[in-house]
């Protein structure tokens, strides 16, 4: 346990010259093109972008589920070529094993690693304690609320002590109040474990509140439109979301995304007479906006 908690920071994600295209009957379709991102050890980085921009595709490639068409994904210099317990993943649909109790779910990665039963039971209990879930270790996931399920999902992904944690819109299915609590919990865990996090979301507030840096992607085929450092001090409080600094960051990101969302919907919108809408175009540099 302690070795998981106090491990030296590592987990440098590097995605270079990345593109990914699918085959279709009309020929290859580009989902992501010419993308570079990196996450430094212990850094919390989010990817935001209009829906369908390929942000989840990018995350799945880092996880090792998808192979890049061109380019390379490395973690600590090692090329990613398949899923591994070194890269923990949290899914939007929780994806807990319904046939395993909360504790068995958390134990799963340790079991795969061949850890003896009593040892992994102890480890799972400790981790569940950190997430305030020890009372529910014997429950089956179906009996839990969405927020609790996702806490189990995060704890399960962290149990094996991965170098990086990948989260694919993990709080997208939760109500607003639960989401705020989950963001706090995730921040707490991240700060304790000093793990690198790559977080995909479409919620701009969430991305700013959680991250050290935010990548904003363009409409499909996705690429990085902007990279925005979030200089808000830590620990962050909910009240910061009303600060002028936060709001300025939010405005900037919002206009970037709106621009891309409109591009993604293409001509349809022009035909629908949206000329009356006041669209802030990203004419000037983001530094000016902030």
């Amino acid at each position: 346990m302690n070795e998981i908690l106090t491990k030296a920071p590592q987990g440098h994600i590097d995605v270079r010259n990345f593109s990914l295209s699918y085959d279709s009957i009309e020929g290859p379709v580009e989902a992501v093109t010419d993308t570079q991102i990196h996450v430094k050890p212990g850094e919390f980085v989010s990817i935001v972008g209009p829906s369908g921009c390929g942000k989840s595709t990018l995350l799945n490639a880092v996880a090792g589920f998808l192979k890049p068409t061109t380019g390379i994904v490395t973690v600590d210099g090692e090329r990613v070529n398949g899923p591994s317990a070194e890269r923990g993943m949290v899914f939007q649909q929780y994806s807990l094993f319904p046939w395993k109790t909360v504790r068995e779910n958390v134990e799963f990665g340790l079991k795969m690693r061949g850890m003896p039963r009593s040892q992994r039971e102890r480890a799972a209990r400790t981790l569940l304690g950190l997430a305030g879930l020890e009372a529910f270790e014997k429950h089956y996931p179906e009996k839990l609320s969405g927020g609790m399920k996702q806490r189990v999902g995060i704890v399960r992904a962290l149990a094996t002590g991965p170098k990086v944690l990948l989260l694919d819109e993990p709080f997208g299915a939760l109500d607003a109040q639960t989401r705020v609590i989950m963001q706090q919990i995730l921040t707490n865990m991240w700060q304790r474990l000093k793990i690198s996090v790559l977080f995909v979301t479409h919620d701009i507030d969430e991305a700013i509140f959680l991250s050290d840096r935010v990548y904003c992607m363009t409409a499909r085929p996705g690429s990085i439109k902007a990279e925005i450092p979030i200089p808000l001090e830590r620990p962050r409080q909910q009240s910061m979301m009303m600060s002028s600094e936060f709001l300025a960051l939010r405005r900037g990101l919002m206009s970037l995304i709106r621009e891309e969302s409109l591009k993604a919907m293409g001509g349809e919108l022009n035909d629908m007479g949206l000329q009356g809408l006041n669209i802030e175009l990203h004419g000037h540099s983001l530094a000016d906006v902030i």
Partner: peptide, 29 residues
């Protein structure tokens, strides 16, 4: 069988045999 569960098992370090025993079989029960 939900492919996301298979992926969840894979990134927890499960190999083919474990995925069969721990995911496909119970999911089909």
């Amino acid at each position: 069988v939900d492919p996301v569960l298979v992926r969840a098992a894979q990134c927890l370090g499960a190999r083919e045999r474990s995925i069969f025993r721990e995911v496909y079989f119970p999911a089909s029960l």
